[in-house]
């Protein structure tokens, strides 16, 4: 087992290194001089030269990469162009918002998707099964930005149930120590802030959850069908065990393994979906930040955030693989 984990860990290293090279290369593919972008239109040649030196742009590219990676390994992602912010600090401020949104979407997807999948499998070919499967296909076919806009126009503009965007009502003053507004307000027992946060979270979380929800429902169904068809389940039926015991105790527990895997693998998709969802709902997370930075050509931010997201995806996949191996010894042998 230790050997397997070590192998997997080692295989992640070249991937992360490759991502860093790819991302670093991005900034050099881009037409234009970062120093001029930083200084603006009226930069004098002297100040451009000075900034190039201070950014290390006058050094050979491999050396620049070395310096950048040296900083990255120390947790320093550099400085943004437009507002000269410390990117690592900004990232830490914004990432919790994205985690809140992604987790809420994932929880929603699991809470609705697993029961729906179990039901569909148990009542195979019933109207419920067919309906759920069709709906789940509609779910994955839905452009997330369209769904978001339609929800906004219905629930915010027409009905006024939910706010159109943002994370908290502007007049609410809340000092969040961890930047996880939901968690902090809950810990402090500040219900006004917590409920306000929850209301702001609801629509973006629903919009973001559609695709993972559909995938989890389908995955649960097919995993359940698998398990329900196996001998030990048939034996359980034959023994005359109660329906709920068979389905939930014997079948679901075993079917959950692939479902959890799939749920874990949705992280990358959620982060990508967050770009659109956060933009539409003005949710102050890293998805909206990276998109706006691309538009503003603030490449150090794009570089830093992309690297961060990629590292996250690699690590999550690694954790999923390793936990899978823990649960299913056959994998280790491959």
């Amino acid at each position: 087992m230790a050997g397997y984990i070590l192998r997997r860990l080692l295989s992640a290293v070249p991937v992360l290194l490759g991502v860093s090279i790819l991302v670093f290369a991005f900034i050099h593919f881009i037409p234009g001089d970062p120093a001029i972008a930083m200084l603006g239109e009226r930069a004098t040649p002297e100040s451009v030269a000075r900034v190039r030196t201070s950014l290390g742009l006058d050094k050979p590219i491999w050396e620049q990469y070395g310096i950048y990676m040296g900083k990255v390994l120390r947790g320093d992602l550099g400085t943004s162009i437009l507002r000269r912010d410390n990117i690592s600090q900004e990232l830490l401020k914004r990432f919790p918002a994205t985690v809140e949104l992604a987790l809420a979407a994932l929880v929603l997807a699991i809470l609705l998707g697993i029961p729906a999948g179990v039901f569909s499998a148990v009542k195979r070919n019933s109207w419920f099964d067919n309906g759920t499967m069709l709906l789940s296909l509609v779910g994955v076919s839905m452009p997330i930005f369209w769904l978001g806009l339609m929800m906004q126009s219905l629930f915010s503009v027409a009905l006024g149930w939910f706010p159109t965007g943002a994370r908290l009502t502007a007049t609410l003053k809340f000092q969040s120590t961890t930047n996880f507004v939901g968690l902090d307000s809950l810990l402090q027992g500040n219900w006004v802030v917590f409920l306000d946060w929850l209301r702001h979270l609801t629509m973006p979380a629903i919009a973001l959850s559609t695709i993972p929800l559909a995938i989890i429902a389908r995955m649960t169904r097919s995993a359940m069908l698998d398990v329900l068809g196996q001998d030990y389940v048939r034996t359980a039926w034959a023994k005359g065990l109660r329906w709920s015991t068979v389905v939930l105790k014997h079948a679901l527990r075993n079917a959950l393994l692939p479902v959890v895997t799939v749920a874990g693998l949705q992280i990358g998709r959620l982060l990508a979906g967050a770009i659109l969802t956060e933009t539409i709902f003005s949710w102050p997370g890293i998805g909206r930040w990276v998109y706006e930075s691309i538009l503003a050509r603030d490449y150090p931010i794009v570089q830093g955030v992309t690297l961060f997201i990629a590292a996250l995806v690699v690590i999550v996949n690694l954790v999923v693989d390793i936990s899978y191996a823990f649960l299913d010894p056959r994998i280790r042998l491959q």
Partner: peptide
């Protein structure tokens, strides 16, 4: 008023009309 929420005078939830 919670200690950190400085007078949360919020109608966090406006009515539709």
């Amino acid at each position: 008023p919670a200690p950190t929420a400085e007078a949360p005078k919020a109608t966090a939830a406006p009515e539709p009309t």
